[in-house]
């Protein structure tokens, strides 16, 4: 099992270089990182994958960006919008992760979208930065929304990913701390282990439904 942080933002989006992120990640027990707008590379024992994050984009923009994606190892993620947009994105081939579900409308991620996400192997992201940095009502709403997502996840079994959205190495958390934070939203150890390998699940080549036997 690879322990992956599904979103970090190195320099110039943050204050830490990607190499420093890799060093700190190794010290904190992480195996791989998805770095937004950063080329894929391996630093020591840590694999850094290129992440493409489409924010506040319309459906047409998302389709164009996904088609334009040249690097096959890139992890493409889209910020969640309303229910119709989310269904469209989840059904789109090439999208790996739907992010920001906690900030979307209450009914933006429903059972239909959950079923589609499970069928198309699109992961739903759990943003740890809200659990870490937010206080009061904002954090309560996020926990409430993630608990709701987990109810759907247990029913439909779509993949989950865990992201720290770290802009600095100070925002990174150790794997044990991440497990603790996930327990706030009702995830047990098994759920957390599966979520750590969520990026590998969504980027793996799908097994064909029909196999030719000669």
């Amino acid at each position: 099992m690879k322990i992956t942080d599904a979103a970090v933002c190195p320099f110039p989006n943050g204050d830490s270089s990607v190499r420093r992120f890799a060093l700190e990640a190794a010290a904190l027990g992480l195996d791989s990182l998805v770095a937004i707008d950063t080329p894929s590379a391996t630093y020591g024992s840590v694999v850094v994958r290129n992440g493409v994050f489409l924010r506040k984009a319309g459906m047409k923009d998302v389709i164009n960006q996904v088609k334009r994606g040249k690097d096959p190892s890139s992890v493409i993620s889209v910020q969640a919008g309303d229910a119709g947009f989310n269904r469209g994105v989840v059904g789109l081939r090439g999208v790996h992760i739907l992010r920001g579900v906690h900030a979307a409308d209450k009914n933006a991620f429903d059972h239909v979208t959950a079923k589609m996400a499970a069928d198309n192997r699109v992961a739903i992201d759990i943003d740890l930065s809200v659990l870490i940095a937010a206080r009061g009502v904002t954090r309560q709403r996020a926990i409430q929304r993630y608990r709701d997502v987990l109810v759907l996840q247990r029913r439909f079994e779509f993949p989950l990913t865990l992201s720290s959205y770290a802009r600095s190495v100070l925002d990174l958390r150790a794997s044990r701390e991440i497990s603790g934070l996930c327990s706030l939203v009702g995830m047990d150890m098994y759920d957390v282990e599966k979520a750590f390998s969520g990026v590998d699940i969504v980027t793996a080549t799908p097994e064909p439904s029909v196999r030719v036997v000669e």
Partner: peptide
Amino acid sequence: TSRLFLTTED
């Protein structure tokens, strides 16, 4: 003043 976290290689 803003602190940047780098490596020797950087």
